[in-house]
Amino acid sequence: MKSHFTFSKEQRNGIFLLILLIIVLQCVYFFVDKDYQDISVNQEELAKFQKEIDSLKLVKLEERKPKIYPFNPNYITDYKGTSLGMSNEEIDRLHAFRKQNKWVNSSKEFQEATKISDSLLNTISPYFKFPEWVANPKPKTKATVYNNTPKTFAQKQDLNTATAKQLQRVNGVGEYYSERIVKFRNKFDGGFIADVQLQGIYGLTPEVIEKITNQFTVKTPRAIKKIDINKAELEDLVTIQHIDYDLAHEIVEQRKLRDGYKSLNELTKVKDFPVNKIEIIKLYLSLD
């Protein structure tokens, strides 16, 4: 232990100087006058800087606020109504109003149904989005009066020269079907042979066809050379509407079995014959 606490003369001098240095530094720290240089601040620049910081804070606060997107007030849920600032009673009034199968079509009607305050209405009404037909209703036009009373043959217009616009006067024939009729007619060089060919236009119901033929009829039928059913070859039969090669083959086979057709209506006995098209097919056939 003695060796740890026994110092030489040089060591004692060193320890003395170290203690003396510490005491001097402590005295300097406590007794030396601390004069600080006054800092000059430009108050105008500081105010501008502070104002800019405040504006940035406001922008950040606005960004953090929940955004309200346009919505249809007829479909406000409990959560949506609460987030907009509506009370439970006001939300319940809206739901009760909608249960009557009624619709809110304006800000005024919304307030009448919910009894919300003017201040709340002014806050949320700019976000109301009603259907286009409510916001921009189309002006009412006069209803077209159709006259579907049957006309005599002389009074009827020629179906082969009628325009799409003229056909649209028939109740049930709009722009779409009138264009289809004209397009179908123009596929044949000379137009229709008879009114019954309207049955070949997909989508036309028997009721609509009847309305058309009450006003129009084929007055200038397309000239065709009829085919003798008892002499026709396969190549002749396949040129007829609604008859393909297989059906033509069956017609010829049945003709052999029957030793010739006695009536065009016997064709309905042929396998896979389109019975509903018989009147159209008969336009192209003869029985000699």
Score class of each variant (00 low, 15 high):
Y176C: 02
K187H: 04
L287I: 04
A113G: 04
A154C: 00
R258F: 14
E52P: 00
T220Q: 15
S263D: 15
L267H: 08
N13Y: 06
G260A: 12
T205Q: 07
D158S: 03
F49R: 11
D246H: 11
S107A: 15
H95G: 00
K225C: 03
V252C: 03
P150T: 06
E45K: 13
E266N: 03
L46E: 14
R98C: 06
E175N: 05
K34I: 09
T161E: 05
D54Q: 12
F97T: 04
I76T: 07
D33G: 02
E45S: 06
I227K: 07
A162R: 06
I22E: 09
T114W: 03
D38F: 11
Y261S: 07
Q11D: 11
F216D: 06
K108S: 12
K225W: 05
D189C: 01
Y202G: 01
P73E: 12
E132V: 10
N13P: 00
P206S: 05
H242A: 12
T77W: 08
F16V: 03
R64T: 05
S40C: 01
E250T: 01
H4L: 13
F192D: 01
I278R: 04
L283V: 11
S286D: 10
I124V: 11
S263A: 15
Y69I: 00
K67F: 05
F188P: 00
Y36L: 11
A113V: 04
S83C: 01
A194T: 01
R93Y: 08
I209L: 04
G260W: 13
E279I: 01
Q199Y: 05
F5R: 02
I209G: 00
R12V: 04
Q100E: 13
G191W: 09
L264W: 11
I212T: 04
Q254E: 14
Y177H: 08
S125G: 03
K129A: 13
L167R: 08
V270Y: 05
G260E: 10
L94N: 02
E90M: 04
E63M: 12
G190V: 14
Q26I: 13
R185C: 10
F30H: 08
H95E: 10
N88E: 13
Q166D: 07
V218L: 07
I243D: 08
K60P: 01
N214H: 15
L264K: 07
K187A: 07
N147K: 10
H4P: 00
V24T: 07
F273L: 10
D272P: 00
L287D: 08
Y146T: 02
L94Q: 01
I229G: 02
F7D: 01
G200T: 04
